[in-house]
Design a binder for these strands. Structure first.
Length: 109
DNA sequence: GGCGTGACTTATA
DNA sequence: ATATAAGCCACGC
């Protein structure tokens, strides 16, 4: 199953599973998608994001809970505001409270 | 089949 | 804390 889909498709499916009020790291998405070394591929996949309205890519942050340095949605600030709207808290201007809002790997599987 | 690219990650200074 | 280097791998041309 799912072996016909590309890695990108798998990544998109995983990102879509992220519940509101939670965030996931590239590493987590990559791991659930099938391989922990696809972190860069995850970033690339979201960069080409074919369905930004279906894929909550703003819930994906780097492993330290840091938002993207060059968020493509119109500004890094936009991503932060959307996460705050989801109920996610920040420890500073660019760092999400990953310690309490990072979803568990098994929650995506 | 090969090359360049990148929203990552880890290590080092 | 930031900056730089190297490793990692799929996609598109």
């Amino acid at each position: 199953m799912s072996e016909n889909l590309t890695v990108f498709q798998r990544i998109y499916e995983v990102v879509k599973k992220i519940p509101k009020g939670k965030v996931a790291t590239y590493g987590q998405v990559a791991l659930v998608a099938g391989n922990p070394r696809w972190a860069r591929v995850v970033g690339y996949a979201l960069h080409v994001n074919p369905d930004p309205e279906t894929i909550p890519c703003y819930r994906v942050v780097d492993r330290g809970g840091r938002v993207s340095p060059a968020f493509v949605f119109g500004g890094q600030n936009v991503q932060i505001e959307m996460l705050k709207a989801d109920g996610v808290k920040f420890i500073d201007e660019t760092h999400v409270d990953i310690k309490n809002f990072c979803i568990k790997t098994d929650e995506l599987m």
